[in-house]
Design a protein around this nucleic acid. Structure first.
Length: 488
RNA sequence: GGCCCCAUCGUCUAAUGGUUAGGACGGCAGGUUCUCAUCCUGUAAAUCCGGGUUCGAUUCCCGGUGGGGUCACCA
């Protein structure tokens, strides 16, 4: 089977976490079956259109590592597109929708409606008061052809509505099995709006068919719209695609993941220092699990493992603490160069340090990071030693005199140690450990004051790491300062 | 409210008509360690309820309860 999936974002300026997962599953499914994956911009709601949103979306998809075969692309910063089924932006396909809507009217599957928004609202209010179903009353269905022609040519504002047939609709969902909904539940959906734009329902059906989409994988919130879509497929004589409705991603209180209860945009998480890989990995496992006891997967492995039949039916709470853990795992395991590239925006006050030193800082500090942004809290001491009380230099099992003694000895040791030693963490460590052993000292007596002297903090990376990052020269300077500090 | 969907530790989940119901995050308790972190070990913690079917149901069926979604000229 030649599989083709799609991801239709509405250009709101950011990518919702739920949309990320929908896009991801479409991508994974297509790749798994060596099929194609397309992106289509659904910008039929002019009121919500955000300038520059498509560009930003393309960049986000790129940074999370989701490539697509057809759809809008950026060429030298300018919007273009690839694929032979374009245009991939719905606002550029208006004549196509109009033509299909026209056809539906002609064959009696749809009809013109001139009702004002006020009348519709009034109708809804009355139905609500009477505790009736809120549905269009098909008032305009009774209009005779002459009157329709007259009002149309008079330029009266109107919409085109789909005639929902009677009976019931049953369809197969790849994740949930058979679903049946009575057509009496369905309103005569507007297909073409007064502004000449199609609604989602018309556009999605026409485009999915014209673009050759075989599998529609989308959020569960669309289940109740399927009968409308099926009515459209039937009226238009289109063959049916497969449907798969994904469970929702939830807030901690189990409601549909939304703003107000925290960040929901992929861009927010990226800005907070989450790695794209970690975000993708975490989100992929929200509602899908290949084995049950493995957690870390590359995109490639996800493609291999992905199966619609393994997607869960129930909603999944988006749990930040687990994302945090996973992000930490990635920070520690990822290629150092890749981590460095990702960390560049987060060096803050250390931005001016040489790249080599920044890489060393990352190497040392990554053990302590949950997000890359946390770097900002750890980086200050590498730029300049903060002020700290001399009492911090004293280990809990020793006193100030002892600290003084060891720092002085250490200064001598470092001064007489070969410069190349300080290029290797292991050598620094073995040199100092050897010194401790030779003199029969305790680690704490020596290492605690050394570490505090180097970091100015009671909690920090180890002294060998710090010496490696700072270099002997700066290290000596800090030790000398610590000794002075103890004197006063 | 009508309709639709869903239901295993707090959270993400695995498994099966017969298991001590497994893993991960988080929690707790230890260990490693100069501190923090990492890392390691251990531990508590779940099959929503009630009926069936069955020798046996957490698993299959029905009902209930609970949660969610949806009922726009938004997607």
């Amino acid at each position: 089977m030649n599989v083709k999936t799609r991801f239709p974002p509405s250009p709101t300026g950011f990518l919702h976490i739920g949309s990320l997962r929908t896009a991801l599953y479409n991508y994974l499914f297509a790749k798994k079956h060596k099929g194609t994956f397309l992106i289509r911009v659904e910008d039929t709601d002019r009121e919500r259109y955000v300038k520059g949103a498509v560009e930003s979306l393309i960049r986000t998809l790129e940074t999370v590592g989701m490539s697509y075969d057809e759809g809008p692309i950026l060429v030298d910063g300018k919007l273009s597109e690839k694929g032979s089924n374009g245009p991939y932006t719905q606002s550029q396909r208006l004549p196509i929708y109009k033509e299909h809507a026209q056809k539906l009217v002609e064959q009696g599957s749809a009809y013109y409606c001139f009702c004002s928004k006020e009348r519709l609202e009034e109708l809804r209010n009355q139905q609500q008061i009477a505790k009736l179903q809120t549905k269009y009353d098909r008032c305009c269905l009774k209009l005779d052809p002459e009157e329709i022609t007259r009002r149309l040519s008079a330029g009266e504002s109107h919409v085109i509505r789909l005639m929902i047939p009677g009976g019931e609709t049953t369809f197969h969902d790849e994740i949930r099995g058979s679903i049946t909904i009575s057509n009496s539940e369905i309103d005569d959906q507007v297909l073409m709006k007064t502004d000449g734009y199609p609604t989602y329902h018309l556009a999605v059906v026409v485009d999915d068919h014209l673009m050759g989409v075989t599998h529609i994988i989308r959020g569960e919130e669309w289940i109740s719209s399927v009968p409308k879509h099926l009515a459209l497929y039937n009226a238009l004589g289109f063959p049916l695609p497969s449907f798969a409705h994904l469970p929702l991603i939830l807030n901690t209180d189990k409601s549909k993941l939304s703003k107000r209860q925290g960040d929901v945009a992929v861009e927010d998480y990226l800005a907070k220092g989450y790695l794209p890989e970690a975000l993708v990995n975490y989100v992929a496992l929200l509602g899908f699990n290949p084995t049950g006891d493995r957690e870390i997967y590359t995109m490639k492995e996800l493609v291999e493992a992905f199966e619609l039949s393994k997607v869960n039916k129930s909603g999944a709470v988006f749990d930040r603490t687990k994302l945090d853990w996973m992000n930490g795992q990635y920070i520690r395991a990822i290629d150092p160069e890749r981590l460095f590239m990702q960390a560049i925006p987060f060096f803050g006050s250390a931005a001016t340090l040489p790249d080599e030193q920044k890489k060393k800082i990352l190497e040392v500090e990554k053990e302590r990071l949950t997000t890359i942004k946390d770097l900002e809290e750890h980086i200050g001491m590498y730029v300049s030693i903060p002020d700290y009380p001399a009492t911090d230099l004293v280990w809990k099992k020793a006193d100030a005199r002892d600290a003084m003694l060891h720092l002085t000895n250490l200064a001598n040791l470092l001064e007489t140690t070969e410069a190349t030693t300080f290029e290797h963490r292991e050598l620094i460590e073995s040199t100092i450990k050897q010194y401790i052993r030779d003199n029969d000292y305790q680690n704490g007596n020596v290492l605690w004051p050394l570490r505090v002297a180097l970091s100015g903090q009671t909690q920090s990376a180890g002294p060998f790491d710090l010496l490696w990052v700072l270099g002997v020269e700066e290290g000596m300077r800090r030790i000398t300062k610590a000794i002075d500090n103890l004197h006063t």
